[in-house]
Nucleic acid binder design. Structure first.
Length: 789
RNA sequence: GCCGGGAUGGCGAAAUUGGCAGACGCAGCGGACUUAAAAUCCGCAGGUCCGAAAGGACUGUGGGGGUUCGAUUCCCCCUCCCGGCACCA
């Protein structure tokens, strides 16, 4: 808000909106707990929070307010969903999904914590369930999402790295290993007789001495179907893997495996190698199957040592010294800088070259191909909960999946629904919602009863701010063109992956629809720190919250605003201390008292014509301080946003003004007309400098100074470099780098002048007495250092 | 293990390009005002040591080393804290 106010005062047209991301599980759960319908509960909270925001003096443009849980907004979620479906980017798939038993709904991968627990229930383990789900094909944009991170140089490196890791692009190859009984498939299930393996090191394939499958791999199920003993052992591996995920240290799982007793054929050399099942192979990465090359991978090495599998060297290090060849490198030898041996026709190639040639060869022969895998998965958006956007799809016995026609949007979320956690989607229990006629055949159809993930709501809301009341489109593209991309987005790091990757995806999709011209929605991103109180993040769940109402009641809105900016720079966490805000309150009192007791004389001085009398040295000093302060505050708004030091600077100015008043009184100087005019200027500029931070006080004082009109339209004070310049400087004098004295010289004094003064200084003379001057260092305006021996 | 960020008085912090470490504020101490208190105003204040005091000496930005006339700032090594990722094949 301070920044927006500053920009306004500098003549910019600022879009400074606020809205309510108000669908979702937390709201629904709270509503259930409070035995209130979610809509009522949510709108009630919005009203409360809006009042709090207004009380805090946020200059939001409420005419642009967006509320995602109201039909005029979620209408367009549904519209976008139809567009995704039209373009083949929304699809329905039966799949294993993350299921939180507490939320009683599916979670996106992004909503499962690294320890396998729910993001909302940090001690509830997420289960896997097979369900029909709607997915958005975010993976279509995986490469672009990754590539365009390079363009986002206004984003913190940290966020870009997190997104890069999340997308997790990995170049490699798929290679098919046929099971040795592939010719005779009798008795084997639908998975067939081929194991497709993903590897980034196809160059080491001649060193593969086993194939390792994830315990959940479909072929394992086939093999174990007729083998209860194997089934039991595999189940044990699954349990171990679950436990490790639960403990959050899958990386440190003790490797276990079991041989299936079967063999697979390495297509490169026709060799039969054993097929194992291992607890360290993850079904949700790559193909859930690997070729194990113990000599060139440390995990495979560890496993092979444990189970006594063959370790075969196929890459030798390339030595810097051509005379020397290392024939027995320390195992496992993982580096890519090597040369192939024991690899048939590929022996002698360097690794990088071999990777290209061997994957091309596999493709040519039809048993593999170069491929890229991603950690990023398609976005599952179905939620079996009530409080969300209804998915605008119908199921007709005759026509199958039928989208709701655009003209029938929005599909309104029915009110008065019995929400319980049991029995699947609550909407499924509302017959008048579920039972519809198929728009294609006129026969009976059922509505989709799942709702959309809330992250859908937040993926494009910022575009809606430009045109919040449009009822025939999500927004007008021309209007968007004027405002977008967003110059400055501000939010917590907790949005680094989820929200900010979905938003980027949505923007790229809207671009491909021709709705927007942006590749990226946000030009500059600023990640704020959190508010810490009593050593913990301030949060509703921990109960260490200072409510804004309480704050405003006790200290006033301005003090609360100023303190939250003063306590730490905004990119750092902020340690909330009640005693700190009291100090700010005192400061505001000092400002108020100063301006009020001088307001009358200032007004008078303004009315009179300024006299030509030169300013007293003290008054000149105040003038200088004022201009220095204007510079410091302005610079920070344009640069680092370290508002804590801006506020310090204003405090210093006020302290100087108090000292000036006192000295003027002590010397019983009658304030001449030029001094009075200066005072008037100082008061005006002081009020303007405070306006972005403390708008209430600033407006009050602004009127007291006889000014009229909105402070947001008042011009930000200009600083005058000539007036800000010091006339005299105190230059520190160091001897051998240690401070020994200071000399006062006119600003811009020459080297010889300053050195002469320094060497004439009493303390300096005694310090260097009897020593030899080796070197004299003069940094203009900064210091003098005399090196002696 | 990998990738970010961080460590400065009793506390929140500042030092923007290698140039006076601790601005500003909190808490503290002293003084003024007051019958008194609150509020307000003024002043002191990194640590250790010397000195009655004025003042002075040494030391000090997580630890160790280096570059430099000079390092909170640059380089190397290490410790701890916070966040993210992690048998990703």
């Amino acid at each position: 808000d301070a920044l927006a106010r500053y920009m306004w005062m500098n003549g910019y047209n600022v879009l400074h909106p606020m809205g309510w991301d108000s669908f979702g599980l937390p709201a629904e759960n709270a509503a259930i707990q409070n035995n209130t319908p979610p809509r009522e509960w949510t709108l009630g909270n919005i009203a409360k929070m809006k009042a709090q925001m207004k009380r805090l003096g946020f200059a939001y443009d409420w005419s642009r307010e967006v509320t995602t849980c109201l039909p005029d907004y979620y209408h367009w979620n549904q519209w976008f969903f139809l567009k995704f479906y039209e373009k083949g980017l929304a699809y329905r798939k039966k799949s294993k999904v993350n299921w939180c038993p507490q939320c009683a709904t599916v979670l996106a991968n992004e909503q499962v914590l690294p320890n396998g627990c729910c993001w909302r229930h940090e001690d509830t383990l997420v289960e896997q369930r097979e369900l029909e789900q709607w997915f958005l094909r975010i993976t279509k944009y995986a490469d672009e999402l990754l590539r365009d991170l390079e363009k986002l140089d206004g984003w913190p490196e940290k966020v870009r790295t997190m997104q890069r890791n999340w997308i997790g692009r990995s170049e490699g190859a798929l290679v098919d290993f046929k099971l040795d009984y592939a010719e005779d498939r009798s008795g084997f299930g639908p998975a067939g007789g081929t194991i497709s393996v993903f590897t980034t090191r196809i160059d080491t394939i001649f060193g593969a001495t086993s194939v390792q499958l994830a315990p959940q791999h479909p072929i394992v199920a086939d093999l174990a179907a007729s083998n209860p003993d194997l089934r039991a052992k595999v189940d044990q591996l699954i349990v171990e893997q679950r436990k490790a995920k639960e403990g959050g240290d899958i990386g440190e799982i003790e490797k276990h495996g079991v041989s299936t007793g079967r063999y697979a054929i390495n297509p490169f050399n026709g060799e039969k190698i054993p097929v194992w099942v291992a607890n360290y192979i993850l079904m949700d990465y790559g193909t859930g199957a690997i070729m194990s090359v113990p000599a060139h991978d440390d995990r495979d090495y560890e496993f092979a040592k444990k189970y006594n599998l063959e370790i075969r060297l196929v890459v030798l290090p390339i030595s810097n010294d051509p005379e020397e060849t290392v024939t027995e490198p320390r195992l496992p030898f993982i580096a890519h800088e090597g040369m192939l041996i024991n690899s048939g026709r590929f022996s002698g190639l360097e690794c990088a070259d071999a990777i290209k040639k061997m994957s091309a060869y596999a493709e040519e022969k039809g048993f593999g191909k170069p491929t890229v895998t991603y950690r990023l998965k398609d976005w599952g958006i179905s939620r079996q909960r009530y409080w969300g956007t209804p998915i605008p799809m119908l199921y007709c016995e005759k026509d199958g999946i039928v989208p709701v026609p655009e003209k029938d949007l929005p599909v309104i979320l029915p009110a008065n629904v019995d929400i319980t956690l049991a029995g699947g989607s609550p909407l499924g229990r509302v017959p008048e919602f579920v039972n519809v006629t198929c728009p294609k055949c006129g026969g009976p159809a059922r509505r989709e009863t799942d709702t959309m993930d809330t992250f859908v709501d937040s993926s494009w809301y910022f575009y809606r701010y430009t045109d919040a009341h449009n009822d025939h489109a999500p927004f007008d593209s021309k209007t968007v063109e004027y405002w977008f991309p967003i110059d400055q987005y501000i939010g917590g790091v907790e949005h680094a992956i989820l929200h900010l990757i979905y938003s980027r995806f949505w923007t790229k999709f809207m671009r491909d629809l021709g709705l927007v011209t942006d590749d990226e929605p946000v030009e500059r991103l600023f990640t704020q720190g959190m508010v810490i109180k009593d050593g913990a993040k301030m949060s509703k769940s921990l109960g260490n919250v200072v409510s804004p109402d309480e704050m405003v009641a006790r200290y006033g809105a301005d003090a609360a605003r100023l303190y939250s900016l003063f306590a730490a720079p905004p990119d750092r966490d902020l340690d909330w201390q009640d005693s700190g805000i009291e100090g700010i309150q005192r400061f505001l009192g000092r400002v108020y008292r100063f301006v009020t007791r001088n307001a009358a004389s200032a007004a008078r001085a303004q009315a009179e014509s300024p006299s030509a009398t030169p300013l007293s040295p003290q008054a000149r000093q105040i003038q200088r301080k004022l201009h220095q302060t204007i510079k410091r505050v302005s610079d920070d708004f344009q640069g680092r946003w370290h508002f804590n030091t801006c506020i310090s600077a204003i405090m210093e100015l006020v302290n100087a003004l108090y000292a000036y008043e006192e000295s003027a009184m002590a010397e019983s100087q009658s304030t001449g007309s030029s001094s009075a005019a200066l005072l008037a200027e100082v008061q005006h500029d002081l009020v303007l400098l405070l306006a972005p931070f403390a708008p209430y006080l600033a407006h009050e004082l602004w009127e007291m100074l006889g000014e009229k009109g909105n402070l947001l339209k008042a011009a930000w004070p200009k600083y005058d470099a000539a007036l800000a310049k010091e006339e005299e400087l105190e230059i520190p004098v160091q001897i051998n780098g240690k401070l020994r004295s200071r000399v006062t010289v006119p600003a811009g004094a020459s080297e010889s002048f300053v050195l002469e003064r320094a060497l004439a200084d009493e303390k300096v003379r005694s310090s260097i007495a009897g020593k030899q001057i080796v070197k004299k260092i003069f940094v203009p305006g900064k210091l003098v250092n005399i090196v002696v021996k």
